[in-house]
Computed example of a mutant assay.
Amino acid sequence: MTQGAWGSGPATGFLAPAWSSADAAGRTLADVLPAVARALGVDLGGHASSLELPPAPAYVVVLVDGLGHELLAEHRAQAPYLHSLLGTPPATCGVPSTTATSLTSLGTALAPGQHGLVGFTSRVPATGELLNALFWDRDVDPLDWQPHPTAFARLEALGVRTTVVSKREFAGSGLTRCGQRGAAYVGADDIAERVAGAVAAAAHRPSLTYVYDGDLDWHGHRAGVDSQRWRGQLRDVDEDVQELRDALPPEVRIVVVADHGMVDCGPETRVDVDVLPGLRDGVTLLGGEARFRHVYCHDGAVDDVAATWREVLGERATVLTREQATARGWFGPVDAGVRPRIGDVVAAAHGTWGLFSTTDFAYETTLVGLHGSLTPQEMLIPLLVC
């Protein structure tokens, strides 16, 4: 790929989000389901997209949590089948490169600034509390938080049968309701159940079946992507996709995507924002995650907070005000109700740095693999068709 095509910045190694780069338009997670719709013979409308998929009577979209394009490209030995499908340009996830944001972009066909899930954790403007979008740990109505119809619901209205095959514990969760409402839900906790659920759902014509696999991400967080444990799980993923392909009729197409990649953050690239001088001054609340912090400020303190974070963090992160980040297109078009959920200041980590808070997010300090920032390792995702 060329630097110009993906908007890579030489100073930071960041990628420009695809909705802010005309060269990369049409290859984001938000473009996948509209492209599937066209391949099924219907039109979801919305923004223009250059992504085209082969016509088929049924599609199965498999999302492997944490399988970045660059990680897959580097691990041919562990994933020979998936690696053999590489060849088309990768897609990009959104900003931040994190699960809650990405799954909702896929499910709604919208940018983060439109669907409103702008991070792993973000501020609830009405209460000033922090919402964890994965665990949905606040009394927030998902339909108020994300009011747009999902792509699944829109496809159903067009006569396409839609099904979500995912873990039983996620049925009815806030995140599921934000991004996947309108589809039938099939609980599946292992590969045998996932394959059986996908095969049964794909028997309907036309149909879209979405299958979620979160195990690779789980191992990456705990052991790192540079670990035998992660590589072993990647082998399992590769075999699982082959098993699914073998079980489906040949006319049913599979699209394999991911929600983000991952980098390992070792002790030498960890900073504690509670210890570095000045980083909590003027700050009312920290959100986001270690690779992408939302920083919420006292009234009138935004400029001072941004200046302090820039000075103290230096080359370890890009620090922007909300206005600067939205002007760069980091979140795509931003709805008025979503704007105050974004940090007054945002800090995106460079390289493999992590911006930890031992006070507010002690659990994050136990993790090895991280994601959330705008590096190619985190934002580039495979888009494989078989």
Score class of each variant (00 low, 15 high):
Thr2Ile: 06
Ala5His: 14
Ala11Trp: 01
Phe14Trp: 11
Phe14Ile: 02
Asp23His: 14
Ala25Phe: 05
Val36His: 11
Ala37Leu: 04
Arg38Ser: 09
Val42Phe: 08
Gly45Gln: 09
His47Trp: 14
Ala48Thr: 14
Ala58Arg: 01
Ala58Trp: 07
Val60Gly: 07
Leu63Cys: 14
Leu67Lys: 09
Leu72Phe: 11
Leu72Ala: 11
Ala77Cys: 11
Pro80Asp: 08
Leu86Ala: 13
Leu86Gln: 04
Thr88Ala: 15
Thr88Lys: 15
Pro90Ser: 13
Ala91Gly: 15
Thr92Arg: 12
Gly94Ala: 15
Gly94Trp: 04
Pro96Arg: 10
Thr99Phe: 14
Thr101Asp: 13
Ser102Trp: 08
Ser102Asp: 06
Gly107Gln: 05
Ala111Tyr: 12
Pro112Asn: 11
Gln114Leu: 14
Val118Cys: 03
Leu130Asn: 07
Asp139Pro: 02
Pro149Arg: 10
Thr150Leu: 14
Thr150His: 08
Leu158Asn: 03
Val160Gln: 10
Arg161Phe: 08
Arg168Gly: 15
Glu169Met: 10
Ala171Phe: 07
Thr176Leu: 10
Arg181Asp: 04
Gly182Glu: 01
Asp190Phe: 03
Ile191Thr: 14
Val199His: 12
Ala200Glu: 15
Ala201Lys: 06
Ala202Asp: 01
Leu208Pro: 07
Asp213Leu: 15
Gly214Gln: 13
Trp218Asn: 14
Trp230Leu: 05
Gly232Val: 05
Gln233His: 10
Glu251Met: 05
Arg253Asn: 00
Val256Trp: 01
His260Lys: 00
Gly266Ser: 08
Leu285Arg: 09
Gly288Cys: 13
Gly288Leu: 06
Arg291Phe: 08
Phe292Leu: 07
Val295Asp: 00
Val295Lys: 00
Tyr296Ser: 06
Gly300Cys: 04
Arg310Gly: 08
Leu313Ala: 06
Arg316Trp: 09
Thr326Val: 15
Trp330Met: 06
Val334Ala: 03
Asp335Lys: 02
Gly337His: 02
Gly337Trp: 04
Val338Asn: 00
Arg339Ala: 13
Ile342Cys: 02
Gly343Thr: 06
Asp344Val: 02
Gly354Val: 04
Glu364Arg: 08
Thr366Pro: 02
Gly369Ala: 01
Ser373Cys: 03
Leu383Val: 15
Cys386Ser: 14
